[in-house]
Write a protein that binds this DNA or RNA. Structure first.
Length: 412
DNA sequence: CTTAGAATGACAACCCTC
DNA sequence: GAGGGTTGTCATTCTAAG
């Protein structure tokens, strides 16, 4: 047994690839054998094990991103006859919906899919729903027949979204859609550099200058707001592009920087609503919902705009700023249900789940997009993959989802 | 103390040519 | 297939000002 310990440990760990974070911080959802071997290793050996697992997974077939990135259909291309069969273990109740960035490091989506009951992720670019791109992967067990989009349909091009920019838009800037909205904006220094670079020419600048300007505009999502003048989007413009009501993140002592940050981390509401729209017929009287990593309430806003009544919403969100935003939205939209909020997914344990389910009778939907910090391409410092400090909270999403599943099954 | 501004690449995926 | 060029990415951290 001891002689083949290393080989066995690789096999077991590979099954739960790079679950080191779980092994460290949780004492569940890992085979005893894995825990024993992992905990018995010194730090050097632990790192080596993880490296070997990564290499092994990297060598296997990994999930490929589709082109075009339309998932199981978008409003303009519905994929009429497409059917999918879910693994038995994946079926509800409850329905669940998981989201994260599509362009994650290699192997990440394989792991996510493996944990979430072997469901094939649905990769969708929100440019089919709005004027801004947002490439995301969604794992869910929802039906995909008879989806419908939110009305009114949002503007699909920059010109439609921002008519005032048309007057200043040079013919040599071919952009039709904006790139992904992030958490930081372009600096004033940069827009000034661009202005002074362009002011030297009466007509179109030479190709090299054009190339520089367009490159920076793409990188920082700048729009034309005057002669030779570009600028980053305002927070309320970002709210509109992402499908939130205007001023959703405004007020209550929230700084401009925080607004950009919260919005940059959020769902694109129209995209999510399209996927969740099938719930309207299934739950005509409304739903009980568990919302993990709620952020500024993208899923809540989507369901509300779909006309699906929110009976009980249990929302877990670390940031007080974000909790305040959701609470304020909840009051302003005259919700008749209950909003219960918590701040830490890691402390959301069995007892709490059982208690809440006994109170409200079970969850119809579990939604969550776990932190992408350590997965996102724009992170220069700590793009550590699913084992990264924040992104490892994915395992808590799985843990809590599985808990809800178990508790609800035991009550049948 | 809080806030805003600015600087800071790596890494895939894709395209093209050879 | 190999190799080079192009494009795009739910970010972090330091600094300075208020």
């Amino acid at each position: 047994m001891e002689r083949c310990g290393q080989e066995a440990s690789i096999l077991v760990l590979t099954d739960f690839i790079c679950a080191a974070q779980v092994a460290r911080e949780q004492d569940c959802y890992l085979p005893e054998e894995t825990k024993r071997i992992y905990n018995g290793s010194n730090p050097m050996k632990k790192r080596k094990l993880i490296e070997m697992c990564k290499k092994k997974v990297g060598a296997e077939d990994t999930i490929r991103l589709p082109n075009p990135m339309i998932g199981f259909g978008v409003p303009s291309q519905p994929l009429e006859d497409f059917r999918r069969s879910l693994p038995e273990a994946a079926k509800g109740p409850p329905y669940f919906y998981y989201e994260n960035v599509a362009l994650a490091p290699k192997g990440v989506w394989d792991t996510i899919s493996r944990f979430l009951y072997e469901i094939e992720p649905e990769f969708v670019d929100s440019k089919y729903f709005s004027a801004t791109a947002r490439k995301r992967g969604y794992v869910h067990n929802l039906p995909i027949k008879n989806r419908f989009p939110l009305i009114p349909l949002p503007p699909l091009t920059i010109h439609q979204a921002f008519p005032l920019t048309r007057k200043w838009w040079p013919a040599w800037d071919p952009r039709d859609k904006l790139n992904c909205i992030q958490t930081a904006i372009g600096s004033a220094k940069l827009t000034e550099r661009i202005r002074s670079a362009l002011e030297r020419y009466d007509n179109d600048p030479p190709e090299s200058v054009q190339k520089f300007v367009i490159e920076q505009c793409r990188k920082w999502n700048l729009v034309w707001v005057g002669r030779n003048k570009v600028a980053p989007l305002e927070p309320d413009e970002v709210e509109m592009l992402l499908g939130f009501p205007k001023n959703h993140t405004r007020g209550g002592g929230i700084s401009r920087t925080d607004r950009y940050k919260s919005l940059g981390n959020s769902f694109q509401v129209d995209t999510v609503a399209y996927h969740l729209s099938v719930l309207k017929d299934i739950f005509p009287n409304g739903i009980n919902m568990l919302s993990l990593f709620s952020g500024i309430g993208g899923a809540e806003v989507a369901l509300h705009r779909l006309g699906i009544k929110l009976k009980n919403v249990v929302s877990i969100e670390k940031s007080k700023v974000n909790r305040d935003i959701v609470r304020s939205w909840w009051e302003q939209t005259n919700q008749t249900g209950n909003l219960i909020d918590f701040d830490d997914v890691q402390q959301f344990d069995v007892d709490r789940v059982v208690q809440i389910i006994n109170n409200i009778g079970g969850f119809d939907l579990v939604v969550g997009g776990s932190p992408c910090n350590n997965l996102a391409g724009s992170n220069r410092v700590s793009r550590d993959g699913l084992e990264g400090k924040e992104s490892a909270l994915f395992y808590d999403y799985f843990r809590i989802l599985d808990l809800v599943k178990c508790v609800m099954r035991s009550r049948e």
